[in-house]
């Protein structure tokens, strides 16, 4: 039998071992009581019973704002700052699946240099979770889109490796592990697509109802693990050079659909429908692939209580 069981009492030592693989980050709580992923200076900061962080781990791969190009002496050059090795501990399956989706977008040809660099230096350690009222994932999902997954049981964790790096982690932590039954594989199920094809059109009553309350604040997009739209800006420097940055953008903002002299999504209804069309039905070349991972953040943060689960309800249940 393989040594794959970690007793809860040895978790802190295990975390120390993880530090050998990079700067250790995990779920913590801020002074204002908000759950977040941040550096773990002390194991006591770890909040393993968290439900969801406000900002998903996409922030490690797609910083809110980053310099992508520098302009100096007549030419542009790559502006990415080097990334260090990072170990992200305690990520739920939904967020792991979110990263897996971003991988499909940013690691596809042409590979995004900044994303790829950071991704290659990121070690992901998943952990099982207890869904709450906001979650809409497939229950009991265990994502394999990580290096190591920890399935929490009564007195410890059953570990399963999903990559060569995961196996290296197990080897490094061998002294701390005990023999135990291998975790039962729990394949992640397919996520629900909207059942009603009429949802693609603005006339659907659900959109009208959502749009009548939506305030276009964009919170659902900011906290979505798979929303990656970005804007690009450039700023001159006094020395004659310049810096081009990209930063998170938001399709719920009116400016998103603007062109000279027109706006193709002037109304909230259009923008809401557009966002969910992208989320659930995908874009070229990821058309048909839903990118909602069921983390429930959008429902939790929505100030007017828009509940996307209504989208996936069978059509006959919809009010007409």
């Amino acid at each position: 039998m393989e040594k794959t069981f970690l007793k809860t009492s040895r978790l802190n030592q295990f975390l120390e071992t993880l530090r050998l693989f990079g700067e250790l980050h995990g779920p913590t709580v801020s002074e204002s009581g908000v759950h977040r992923f941040s550096q773990l200076h002390d194991p006591a900061e770890l909040q393993l019973d968290y439900r969801r962080t406000q900002i998903p781990p996409k922030k490690y791969l797609l910083p809110f704002r980053e310099e992508i190009l520098h302009y100096a002496s007549g030419s542009y050059s790559e502006g990415y700052a080097g990334a260090g090795d990072l170990v992200l501990f305690g990520v739920h399956s939904c967020d792991l699946e979110g990263i897996a989706y971003l991988d499909r977008v940013f690691l596809a040809e042409p590979v995004d240099t900044g994303y790829a660099t950071r991704r290659s230096r990121l070690t992901l350690i998943g952990i099982s979770c207890e869904p709450d009222d906001f979650c809409f994932c497939t229950e009991g999902m265990e994502s394999s889109s990580c290096d190591l997954f920890l399935d929490a049981v009564a007195d410890g964790f059953r570990l399963s490796s999903h990559s060569a790096r995961g196996t290296a982690l197990l080897t490094a932590a061998e002294q701390l592990l005990e023999e135990g039954p291998p975790p039962a594989p729990r394949p992640s199920g397919p996520r629900l697509l909207p059942q009603d094809p009429q949802l693609r059109f603005s006339e659907h009553p659900l959109w009208r109802r959502f749009a009548s309350t939506c305030v276009s604040c964009g919170a659902c997009s900011v906290c979505c693990p798979t929303c990656y739209c970005f804007d690009v800006r450039e700023y001159p420097s006094l020395s004659g050079g310049g810096t081009r940055i990209r930063e998170w953008d938001n399709c719920l903002f009116a400016s998103h659909g603007e062109v000279a002299g027109a706006n193709f999504r002037p109304d909230r209804l259009d923008r809401l429908r557009y966002r969910f069309l992208h989320k659930y039905c995908g874009f070229t070349p990821l058309q048909g692939i839903t990118s909602c991972v069921g983390c429930g953040r959008c429902k939790e943060v929505c100030p007017v209580g828009i509940d996307l689960r209504e989208l996936t309800a069978p059509p006959e249940r919809e009010e007409r």
């Binding site: 940013f106 739209c229 970005f230 804007d231 690009v232 557009y274 992208h278 874009f283 070229t284």
Partner: peptide, 15 residues
């Protein structure tokens, strides 16, 4: 913005 299908600024429907 990006020209290579990433930033999503030029979306029309699913294209």
């Amino acid at each position: 913005r990006c020209g290579i299908g990433r930033c999503c600024h030029c979306a029309l429907g699913q294209k």
